[in-house]
Design a protein around this nucleic acid. Sequence first.
DNA 1: CAGCTGACAGATTTCAATATCTGTCATTCC
DNA 2: GGAATGACAGATATTGAAATCTGTCAGCTG
Lengths: 199, 199
Amino acid sequence: MPPTSQTLTAERILEATEEVLRRHGPAKATVVDVARALGVSHGSVYRHFRTKAALREAVTKRWLDRTTGVLAGIVAAADLDPETRVREWLAALFAAKRRKAFDDPELFATYSVLTTETAETVVSEHLAELTGQLTEIVRAGVSAGAFTADDPAVTAGALFRATDRFHDPHYAREWERPGVEAEFEALVDLLLRGLRARH
Amino acid sequence: MPPTSQTLTAERILEATEEVLRRHGPAKATVVDVARALGVSHGSVYRHFRTKAALREAVTKRWLDRTTGVLAGIVAAADLDPETRVREWLAALFAAKRRKAFDDPELFATYSVLTTETAETVVSEHLAELTGQLTEIVRAGVSAGAFTADDPAVTAGALFRATDRFHDPHYAREWERPGVEAEFEALVDLLLRGLRARH
DNA sequence: CAGCTGACAGATTTCAATATCTGTCATTCC
DNA sequence: GGAATGACAGATATTGAAATCTGTCAGCTG
């Protein structure tokens, strides 16, 4: 490992951590490994992250935030009609998760483990942000008269939970089974029928 | 342990196995323990179950079937209107799972582990039976003109998956959080709106 | 003097020897 | 003779000693 004599930043540590996690998996990735990969002593890593848990938490948050970013675009697309936006947002969420799980199964498994062991707050903030985005879309649909929803936040929560199977990593194995696409479509159809305002 | 000199049946072995699992948990429950509890040699257990896996599978099936039995009653109640039947069936499923998880958390955890390690077929047959029951109710609702559903089996599948969070043991921790009841109601309301036939 | 190092104590993990368990089957028992 | 036993081989789990890791901090370095 080259001693890469740049200044040591939190960002560089996170990159190295991700690399170490990819190489060794969550069980065997150590702070010493991360330090070695950066060509520094492990004491230096502790200057930027108080504990190993904090480091893992930060790298997990980074990973989760990447997905959030992708979806933000659909929330912003206010020109589309409400139904299409809900449909596309849910489809994009499913597609994003599935792509991650399929493209690099080991890294996905690694982060699945991290999300279960990491502080509750990181994950629940991630989920809160996602349902927040969905609430935004539902609210716009209600304003436009396309949807019926007493409380958009509650309804968005229901939509999000109803589609758990298609974004919760716990179900990742199911995502490659044939027919999932159809199951997803059938569920979203049902949900959108329930969401539609009666004329 | 008294040597209980009754004839050794598969049923008695299953009862003893459940007891041993309750006492020792899934990781430490051995066939030798089961035999000891029955006052027989472990060779006798192997006369009734070819492998330890088969024994665990049988005891798991027994446990799953108990839930299925409870719900069958609601399917049979053809006098209720379709919406009420769907609502009550889903509520009964949630209630049954939640009761099991709450009344005896350790045994519930034990069986949660067993269902993940046990042969895929036992669990998927259980799920198939449940969605079968739900299909029955949806089909009756369509016949009565109360529901719209191109294919009742597909729709029932969507309903079942949409409510995963409220019956999949993986989410058991969520079931004691305050507000779950409301979340459940909101979701079922949304689903029933989607299911209703347009007049 | 701000950032980094490396030695250190206590916690955790690894590893190999030991003990227990699974599954079989020749023999015993009723 | 049908059911149960218990000794056995190979597989799996447990244990405790040694190695590694986490987190701290006094001191070095540029």
